[in-house]
Write a protein that binds this DNA or RNA. Structure first.
Lengths: 358, 358
DNA sequence: CTGAAAGCGCTTACAG
DNA sequence: CTGAAAGCGCTTACAG
């Protein structure tokens, strides 16, 4: 099946031991931090190792220690720059702790069950699921096996996995406040994947707070966090006999597509003819040609919380699920009409922080 | 050092064998495609395996076969959407062949030597280096060890590693033709990393062909393929007493930043006041708010060439370096003034293909 | 087709 | 501190 597969010969600890005139154990101890070995023996081994080009075989080590130092990262899709950002940061954090990252992608709009077998076969020490989930059975299996799982930017009612999210509901509320304060009267929402927790919470908060302001109408179309579907959704919404004055697009990735449809297919000027707000504060939102007013999801905070939880659980063996929720800010840029009050500047960023009671 | 590390107990082939009343060898053969095993035995094993929740241990398999089925992918940076695209496609292609992807990032502007040890310890079967390289010694070490290395979107004079690139020199030439035909008289170039082959070739071709057209002046600033540095370079170039009429930015990722500086810091209208062309045909180039005229680097062709070379060499053991060069197209959009002739539409894409001899 | 056995390259009690 | 030895969970000649 594999055609002719050629075996490679590597230098082993036995060869180094022989060359250095010590036992194989001594070689192993030299490369095991904290093992008891004299400086002299260690030096001899190190010399021989260098001369022979020896490198410990991590696979053999994994087999005996039952620890691979590999973390599986399953990322639904990379099309949205938010995720490459997250991925790069996760890589950095894991590398700093001596862990390696086995990447699986392409699970947009469905759970990660199809790769579960693969990653379990590789004896990964932990699993990070970004924008994707796992069936209950598989989650439970991980818990039983003592393999921690952290959902990133998604959460679940089930209790066997941890999660790291931001305050999506508050974010949705804040955007409603912002748009109402900006004088808008009619509203649209372009949804992400409908049963994702992010989408539910952002929409929930938005709608809830609109209601507080006495608005009970909201036009909804679904973009499933996909660029192409968001375009379709935008075309539909903008073709309505009465088009909403302001649209909340469930993430910046889709908001970019929606802005382009509004500008180049409908000839609308943003924010004069139409206000658009997004979510994530992802790369393109910060590029002036889009300049999207957006609620941030702090990548650094979210990734380090993820890695913290994961490594803590690996080291403690305690599988008690943790749910960390971080706070974002409403970053004000040029894609939506601004309210008269509440926009303040901090560290060069414009934030919307309405004073309580207004 | 690791705190208390808890060992996990997994189901082994021995347990399955016992449960099924067969030998451990039979269990192994059941999970080895092509191994000689009777349908009946196989069925028994499969039942027991399912009942016990057995999964072959890929780490143990790797140790005995000297094949990890892991490919290391070292990617300089993910900030440029071209690379996440490439990464997703590589993941798809490798998964289809039963390989897994160990990701290393963060090697912008330098070679990948720092992670070399890590990836060798994991006994990877092959290495893909995207926009980064390896020192000669390490490249040679891979060749000796029989581990194929493919450079993606970078090439080298050294002969011990393979490479996949596009016709960067031709691309540079074509852009010169395009801009000259568009009536521009003065030109700028915002460079990528100066000693990268992509930068050298794009600039070389561009300059060469400008010369053919009798233009020997070219203003150059360096952006090192970084967004921030490209902004600085753009500010400098646009502040010149006589600003170039057309700028070739060495990739689309930087071109986006340059356009925003031109538009929002210098109040220039594109392409009326300034023409900009880029390279890659990366995501944002296709977004109408940028609409960058750009030479494409076909992701699918380049990634499949990369995986083909790698897997061929893994299976054949033949380390003879291969250099595959694929062709791109000049995709015409709205960021640069168009020539009167030579722009044609094919499959809904506007391409620049000057008829020979004009 | 099947099983007993050797061995992949390590770590880690155990005894000294 | 050091070495001999067991064993991690598999694959694969080898003999039947």
């Amino acid at each position: 099946m594999d055609g002719g597969v050629i075996k490679r010969a590597g230098v082993t600890s036995f060869q180094v031991a022989e060359h250095a005139g010590v036992s194989q154990s001594a070689v192993s101890r030299t490369f095991t931090p904290g093992a008891s070995i004299s400086t002299k023996t260690r030096a001899k081994v190190l010399m021989s190792a260098k001369e022979l080009g020896y490198r410990p075989n991590a696979i053999a080590r994994s087999l005996i220690t039952s620890r691979s130092r590999i973390i599986a990262v399953v990322m639904a899709y990379l099309e949205n720059l938010f995720y490459p950002d997250v991925l790069e940061e996760l890589g950095r954090l894991l590398a700093a702790e001596g862990y390696h990252l086995l990447l699986f992608t392409g699970f947009m709009d469905r759970d990660s069950d199809p790769v579960f077998d693969q990653l379990m076969q590789y004896q990964v020490d932990g699993i990070i699921l970004a924008s994707t989930s796992l069936s209950s059975e598989l989650s439970d299996e991980c818990a039983t096996a003592g393999i921690p799982v952290v959902l990133f930017n998604r959460t679940t009612e089930r209790d066997s996995v941890s999660s790291v999210t931001s305050r999506n509901r508050e974010g949705g509320r804040l955007l409603a406040d912002f748009l109402v304060a900006g004088g808008h009267k009619s509203f649209g929402y372009i949804a992400g994947i409908e049963n994702s927790s992010t989408n539910r919470d952002r929409l929930g908060g938005f709608r809830e707070q609109l209601l507080v302001h006495g608005v009970d109408e909201l036009v909804i179309r679904t973009g499933n966090y996909s660029r192409v579907e968001a375009q379709v959704a935008a075309r539909e919404m903008l073709s309505l006999p009465v088009r909403p004055e302001a649209i909340f697009v469930a993430n910046d990735h889709m908001a970019v597509a929606v802005m382009d449809v509004a500008r180049y297919e409908f000839g609308l000027s943003i924010p004069d003819d139409l206000s658009i707000v997004g979510y994530d504060d992802a790369g393109p939102a910060r590029w002036p040609s889009y300049g999207i007013t957006s609620v941030s999801q702090p990548v650094n905070e979210m990734t380090s919380a993820t890695v913290d939880i994961l490594l803590d659980q690996i080291h403690s063996g305690d599988m008690e699920p943790l749910h960390r929720i971080v706070s974002g800010e409403l970053i004000v840029r040029s894609s939506a009409r601004q309210p008269a009050a509440g926009v303040i500047e901090i560290d060069g960023r414009c934030l919307y922080r309405p004073s309580p009671g207004t």
